[in-house]
Design a protein around this nucleic acid. Sequence first.
DNA 1: GCTATATGGGACTATTCTAGTCCTGATTGG
DNA 2: CCAATCAGGACTAGAATAGTCCCATATAGC
Lengths: 156, 156
Amino acid sequence: MLRISRLTDYGTMILVHLARRSGQVCSASDVAAGTHVALPTVQKILKYLARAELVVSVRGAEGGYTLGREPGTISAADILDALEGPVAITECSQIDSQCELESLCPVGSAWQQINKSIRLALDDIKLTDLRGPATEIPVAALTRSIGRPLARQPRS
Amino acid sequence: MLRISRLTDYGTMILVHLARRSGQVCSASDVAAGTHVALPTVQKILKYLARAELVVSVRGAEGGYTLGREPGTISAADILDALEGPVAITECSQIDSQCELESLCPVGSAWQQINKSIRLALDDIKLTDLRGPATEIPVAALTRSIGRPLARQPRS
DNA sequence: GCTATATGGGACTATTCTAGTCCTGATTGG
DNA sequence: CCAATCAGGACTAGAATAGTCCCATATAGC
């Protein structure tokens, strides 16, 4: 069903890594070593995150990255925006889309509302909530669903 | 951000079309004409929906499709399951995935919980809610967000 | 029974998207 | 200066998606 890209998944791991090293400047290599994601991929993701100001970069030797804000103020929605851009749940939920079927299609607005509701939920989930392995996610609907963490695909 | 496939979007339109013709048997051509989605695509989607028993098929001349259940009992989650299969928000939220990074990755379980919460929300959204252009979606978080329907991309 | 009209199932292709890599230039500490 | 490090973007390979088509099966009507 609904999916986030693998880069977003990595990006979350990377931000969690930085949150744990809060204050310290970490180079891309540090992060790659800490997260076991391939270095070029880490570099790419950090660039996206820097552009979205979720991380702050320090150039030059001994440079690297730190979190751009407090972990409690970075939400899952922020991460998605930074790494997946303004893509929406359906093509017609995008701001700039134009569709000749609009008048024929009674469904679009409903999906758009669903989209917004999901965004609201993701806005409430902060980096601090993602940090631990068995944290409770602070969204009403989530409280009912606590499952054992499943395995993750090998990657790199 | 989070996305559903275009087929799912079409599928919803198709189900809404059938709901409006409730009782009547509609052929794939009828549906294509009514939704302005290309016929071969409609045929493909109806096959998937039939396999998931969301629609019932009548074979032979004068055959076609009707809804398999009452519109009020078909949820957005049902449609996603029928048309996108058991895909999950991240690869590691899938039942059969195996990941060597599990112990290193503190994030996975959080995304899985988010995934479940979204599913719960989608379970509450029924075909009857999708039917009209400006319907209120019956999920708590959704009530705050009512926007003007946006345009839809041309497709066919 | 024959024929026209439908669906059922699956193969196939083309296009788009994604992930991942690499190169070149700019910045800065030692 | 030199080595380390980020910035930006080009590029490739692979996977996923959308869309089309073919052939078998079923059935209504004549």
